[in-house]
Structures are given as structure tokens and as C-alpha cells.
Nucleic acid binder design. Structure first.
Lengths: 119, 119
DNA sequence: TTAACGGTTGAATGATTGCTCAACCATTAA
DNA sequence: TTAATGGTTGAGCAATCATTCAACCGTTAA
């Protein structure tokens, strides 16, 4: 019963010791789920450009729309996803909503990514 | 003409200086495209678990299938994506194909991700 | 040669997702 | 009060994508 996952598999293990070693120390499913969802936010051209822009300066929706050549609506939809993922925070001043990165932590993820593609 | 992107935008700039500062030093579109595609590989539950497993040990397709409770086919399809993105390499020995991470660089991306979700 | 096994592949399908469009809310200026 | 502006929202649509299924390839053992 500890191996209920194997039931969906259409083959048998070849190196049991390897599987056992890797299974030990494997993060919980929730962690992988959260991790995949985090990377999903960086996995779209529009969102990654928004995040990069906000890593430089706090910006409002219209300015982001002009910068990226997209509609307010498209930008706003993506900002909502980023908000729900706690990657950006906002600050409403009058009619204008200023968005910024939720924490500087996020810049690190960029740097690792750029390092890799410029290997 | 340097601002052809603005044509698709449905509003006008509010803080021109901000836009100008951010536009300067903005990576090329190709970089963002590559970056998004890199993160896309981490943005799926199955692929992120495969990558994590391979960050621990070299593994063959069947063992990955058993470990993750999925069919050989599903694993093989995802390994193909990872191969095309140059994130994994393989080594065929007889009937068995051993997969491993293409470079240790990739572990760093994991660590930054785990750091973030465990903030 | 044949059968079994590890692995790959392409088409099909269901699910997810990014953008558009139109309507709408909130704030400010007229 | 009204109109204009910055921004949000939900439905709808097209595109992307992850898995399944069935067929297939390459290697090895019988």
C-alpha cells in the first residue's frame, strides 16, 4: 500500500535500489505542485516580461501595456495571476495602481534562468 | 518606428521616464522567449518530478515510470521535451536508456524555487 | 527465427490557458 | 451630474499541451 503509484505503471522496476534511494528524500507532492505553479508564472512570454520590468521599477498597468505593446486588459489579466501567486503586490493611488515585485527573492530566479540560457 | 509595439496598446503612457528607463537595458525578445521556454520545462508536475529525480541519480525510463506511477509512454514523451530543451542527456546501454541532467546548473534553479515556496 | 522487453512515436482527445471583447467599477475633472 | 480615464472582470475562442492508445523499433535471450 505504500506503493499505490505503481498500479498506474505499465512496466516493472529495473533497479530497485535506485528507485528506493530516490524515493527517500523526495519532497511531498504538494511541494512539487507548488514548485510547478511557481515556474508556471515565469513560463509565459508576457508574464516573464512583466516580472522583469517590475524587477527594475514599480509600474502602473498602462505603462506596462505601452512598454510591452499590449492591451490594458491582457496585462491586467496576467497581473491578476501574478497577484494570486503572491509574486507581485500593488498600491492604489487615486486612479492609478502601481505594481511591484512581492519580494526581491524573485530576481534570483531570473538570474539563474539568464545564466542558463547564456551558458 | 522604434515604437511599433505601442500600436497594439489601447492606452497612453503615464510615466514616460519610467517606460524609457525600463526599456533601456531590456533584454532582447529572443532572451525572454528562451527564458519562458526554459521555465516551461519546470512548469509541469511530471517534468519537475523527473528533473528532480534525475538531479539525484541517473535513471532509466522504466524506473522513472515506477517511481512516478506513470506509463513508460507518458514519461518518454516528457523526456523528449526535456531532451529538445537540452535539459537532459541520455546514454543507451543495450536495451536500457539512462537519462541524466545535462548540467548541474539545473539544480540551482530548483534550489531557488524551493527557497521561494518555503519562504 | 521468434518472443519478450525497454523504449519511442504519432494521432486523438480532453484540459488548460492567453488574449479579445464588451461591459463594468472607481476616481477625478469639467 | 456627467464624461473621461485607469483598471478589472467574465465569457468566449483559438491555441497549446499532457496523457492515452496502439503500433512500432532495437536489443537480447530462447
Amino acid at each position: 500500500m505504500a506503493k499505490k503509484e505503481q498500479s498506474l505503471c505499465d512496466c516493472h522496476a529495473i533497479h530497485d535500489e535506485v528507485i528506493e534511494r530516490v524515493r527517500n528524500g523526495m519532497p511531498e507532492n504538494k511541494d512539487f505542485y507548488d514548485l510547478a505553479n511557481l515556474y508556471k508564472m515565469f513560463a509565459d512570454n508576457t508574464r516573464v516580461r512583466i516580472l522583469w520590468a517590475l524587477s527594475r521599477e514599480e509600474m502602473c498597468v498602462c505603462d506596462l501595456a505601452v512598454l510591452l505593446g499590449m492591451t490594458k486588459s491582457a496585462i491586467s489579466h496576467q497581473l491578476k495571476s501574478l497577484r494570486l501567486s503572491n509574486l507581485v503586490k500593488y498600491d492604489k493611488q487615486g486612479k492609478i495602481v502601481y505594481y511591484s515585485l512581492a519580494d526581491d527573492h524573485i530576481k534570483d530566479i531570473f538570474e539563474k534562468g539568464f545564466e542558463h540560457i547564456h551558458e
